[in-house]
Design a binder for these strands. Structure first.
Length: 436
RNA sequence: GGGCUCGUAGUGAAGCUGGCCUAUCACGCCUCCCUGUCACGGAGGAGAUCGCCGGUUCGAAUCCGGUCGGGCCCGCCA
């Protein structure tokens, strides 16, 4: 019966059987230590019998094996327990020398990220590297937990779609039998349609962007959390939901992974009970005053401004999370709702975290006639199959609604304090990389 | 797409104002020694036509041109 590494200490005095990968060997002459890795971590096994050590001759790290031995308490052992009088049994012999070392910190210097991804299948065997993806899984779990608790229904929408969905980002085109199809840049239109059925929906899925961006914050395939909620009376209701969800996910992950985050040099989390809001116009004003670079004419926030306002929010407001609200109407998308109290702005906010935009959270235009008008204004074909089914939902009744498009990769990157969104992604896709 | 920058054993780096480079170091690998290691330690060893092509030169890892491949910033970006 196999037991796992973390359970060895609860079987002291018993003969136990463990299975895993050879993670490290240290031969000290008459005494040999090996570390066996399983899904929980490492077990130190002591081999004193020369025949057992000889079984490992020529075998490399990664060899799959089992060990049978007596679990003993040993203060000198990592974790306080280890296996003695062990015999080993080899399952899979690995004789090729691995191209990278996995028992030492994995290089994350930007110049070496290419090597990181080249050997991704191997470097996630590094215990530190694994933590990134366990934390990612936890963040997703807490997000699902929060949304489910708030009566959101998780949906799945198609990624193969007919023609252009919207202006903006470039789409990937592909042949679909005798038609042309595109890969979805976002589930935007579908999630809005589903408000008509479920009121509250969310989806966690990849989105595809054919932008030739070569930066530390862009990929061509990104994991998006999309949320949409109906019957909202104000933009703040949406921002509160997204803000509270983020606080729940971050707070819980920071608690669950306190040690992991510390060992990854993640910065301590500085947040308040509610995510503070600052208008874009105010940010431009503050930034211009502080740096001398005039951004008051910009319609969006420039990258340096995003960094600056996050520093400002942390120092002045005690929060590393901040909403930049009221984007100017010049930057609006056809489905955004113009601010009824100030037609020069739209009810659209971006959630910024540690210097980076991680979510965009607008209130939608929900009146059929107004929406059609806004679409026609930007030259969209409302009869195109990409839009006509979307408009059906509005024609037959959608309440006021809003939501967000939320970059999961960016959230993970910033939570851990990594420098590049690709480091938070197992198999990143960018202009140059399509494999592994 | 524009600008800048980098390419040297399996990995990470040094050398790069030309010759002392027959290319250095660390980790990994191989052999041997070592009974408490945990980035074990010690002795020895193998492993690189210095991304590729061409040029300048008596001589190129080093200078020049081209090319291929990375990276960073800007732009683009539901």
């Amino acid at each position: 019966m196999r037991i796992l590494s973390s359970d060895v200490k609860s079987h002291i005095g018993e003969k136990v059987h463990i299975e895993g990968w050879l993670h490290k060997k240290r031969l000290l002459g008459g005494l040999t230590f090996i570390n066996i890795r399983d899904r929980r971590g490492l077990t130190q096994v002591v081999l004193e019998n020369k025949d057992e050590v000889e079984k490992l001759r020529g075998l490399q790290i990664g060899t799959v094996l089992s060990a049978d031995g007596t679990a003993v308490t040993e203060p000198r052992a990592p974790g306080g327990a280890e296996l003695h009088d062990a015999t080993i049994d080899i399952f899979v012999r690995v004789t090729d020398e691995p191209p990278i070392e996995i028992d030492k910190p994995i290089q994350h210097k930007s110049e070496n990220l290419d090597t990181l991804f080249e050997y991704r299948a191997l470097n996630v065997r590094n215990l530190q590297e694994q933590k990134i993806f366990k934390i990612r899984a936890s963040l997703l779990r807490y997000i699902r937990e929060f949304l489910t608790d708030h009566e959101f229904v998780e949906i799945n929408t198609p990624k193969l779609i007919a023609g252009a969905t919207e202006g903006g980002a470039e789409v990937f085109k592909l042949s679909y039998f005798d038609q042309e199809a595109t890969l979805a840049q976002s589930p935007q239109l579908y999630k809005q349609m589903m408000v008509g059925a479920f009121e509250r929906v969310f989806e966690i899925a990849p989105a595809f962007r054919a932008e030739p961006s070569a930066t530390v914050r862009h990929m061509t395939e990104v994991y998006m959390l999309d949320i949409e909620m109906g019957f909202v009376n104000s933009h703040d209701e949406v921002l509160d939901m997204v803000g509270d969800m983020t606080l729940h996910a971050l707070g819980s992950a920071y608690q669950e992974h306190a040690e992991d985050l510390k060992s990854l040099n993640a910065p301590p989390l500085v947040v308040t009970d509610k995510v503070p809001q600052i208008t874009v116009a105010e940010i431009h004003k503050l930034y211009t005053k502080a740096t001398g670079t005039d951004t008051t004419e910009e319609k969006d926030l420039i990258p340096d401004e995003e960094k600056w306002i996050c520093e400002y929010a942390k120092k002045q407001l005690g929060s590393e999370l901040v909403f930049a609200t009221h984007f100017p109407v010049e930057a609006m998308k056809f489905y955004h709702q113009v601010n009824p109290e100030d037609p020069t702005t739209v009810l659209w906010a971006d959630l910024l975290f540690r210097g980076l935009e991680i979510a965009t959270c607008p209130l939608r235009e929900y009146h059929y006639d107004k929406l059609v008008e806004q679409m026609k204004k930007v030259g969209m074909d409302v009869d195109h199959p990409g839009y006509k089914y979307y408009l059906q939902a509005f024609k037959y009744g959608l309440p006021q609604h809003g939501g967000c498009g939320y970059g999961i990769d960016r959230l993970v990157e910033k939570t851990i304090g990594l420098g590049n969104v690709k480091e938070a992604t197992l198999f990143p896709r960018d202009i140059n990389r399509l494999a592994p």
